[in-house]
Design a protein around this nucleic acid. Structure first.
Lengths: 231, 231
DNA sequence: AGGAATTTGTGCGTATGTATC
DNA sequence: AGATACATACGCACAAATTCC
């Protein structure tokens, strides 16, 4: 049988604090109780608590100041903000790879924005890899008006290429919104996501500037310390 | 006099190992002695050694495998292990262009992370253009130890090229954090930013892996043509 | 200005859990 | 199944930075 163990205590604590931040119970700038006090409240040792706090610091949610205290640094406001950001992967080096996890036709969730008149859509779930590291979990919804069926075999090439070649559908523009959202319930075990994680919502528009596709991308929090160089 | 303190022991150890890797004394794939043995060799405790190893892991130089051992990972892919989105402009039009708005020497804001021992830094503010559209507003801080003066004329070429040619400073690694931050007060009228906007904080490291530069980039929310590429 | 109190950082030791070989 | 090796967890002492008086 599987020996599915509960998370280590230090991760349980960091996730607890993250939820408190996301829910607004801990606001930006707030100072935590002293480590000894907080450890006592949580029935843990100072060392374990410190490891949890280090995790928060690594995620940029906490600033730790020796001699002073631990301060929340939440870049919140997340939900209400509209930011446009297009995230794609590069060809050079290893090809960016995507593995299709599931394809199905479903009724569109009611909370989604408008992306076509059909009540149903094709739902594609896939994992994108960067250098063979699972990096981004995606759920892509295409309005059902644009295809009779879609199978994983159709998706061997880039999605937009498939749209163009097989569906006569050109994506000419996208709008992205970045924010924090809950981890999806269908996230595979091998991709580590926090309970609340960075998520990009994308609405894609066709050649007539009509919205035809909506997608959500959850970014691997282990891969969330970014980087690179400006060319 | 300067209060040059010795580094904490755990950092001394991680730097020692980094030098061994850089010098080829520890090759890619090599397995370190067990933590207890290595700690004994280095006359330290297992806990302190583990903290040093965590630092190496954070830098992508070490892979730690429970039940097996600690393995050197010194491929030139060091940067990409950490993930990393390479933010560039989409090809298409002309060369990416940057306009220097202001250069001055200032005391470093206290809330900035450590990027050199000098209390002052050179502050460079500039606008980057994408196809002649103002796209990214940048504020770059270089630790004042690295130059006597900097003038806009120095910055005609790419910043890192200037660093290398004129300041004998190589940027070998950067760490970026993406988040949402307030629009800067000095944002020119002609760049449209939301009150809260996507911001990338970048800490850059020199050839000795010391942080020497810190920058903040605010991204024009109207511009959807950004591509985040991985190196 | 300066010293005491507070608070986080470093370092050590030990015991136990869990994955690998 | 046993041995080995890293991961987690606890506790303590002291150092260093900050804050308060």
């Amino acid at each position: 049988m599987s020996t599915q163990q509960s998370l280590p205590k230090y991760l349980q604590i960091s996730e607890l604090l993250i939820r408190d931040i996301a829910a607004g119970r801990l606001e930006d700038g707030a100072r935590l109780p002293t480590e000894r006090d907080l450890a006592a409240q949580l029935s843990t040792s100072v060392g374990t608590l410190r490891k949890a706090l280090s995790e928060l610091e690594r995620q940029g949610l906490l600033e730790r100041v020796q001699g002073s205290g631990n301060y929340i640094r939440s870049k919140s406001e997340v939900n209400s903000i509209y930011s446009f950001f297009r995230v794609e992967l590069l060809e050079g080096g290893g090809l960016p790879r995507a593995e299709v996890l599931d394809v199905s036709k479903q009724a569109k969730p009611t909370e989604f924005p408008y992306f076509g008149s059909n009540n149903e859509g094709f739902r594609i779930r896939r994992m994108r890899y960067l250098n063979d590291i699972p990096a981004v979990l995606e759920e892509i919804w295409l309005d059902a008006n644009h295809a009779k069926t879609i199978t994983p075999a159709d998706l061997n090439e880039a999605l937009y290429v498939y749209y163009r070649k097989s569906l006569d559908l050109w994506i000419t523009r996208v709008e992205d919104r970045i924010g924090l959202q809950p981890k999806p319930t269908w996230c595979p075990e091998y991709l580590h996501l926090n309970d609340t994680t960075v998520c990009v919502d994308r609405l894609s528009f066709d050649q007539r500037d009509q919205p035809v596709e909506f997608s959500k991308s959850w970014i691997n929090s282990d891969v969330a310390q970014y980087v690179a160089r400006i060319k």
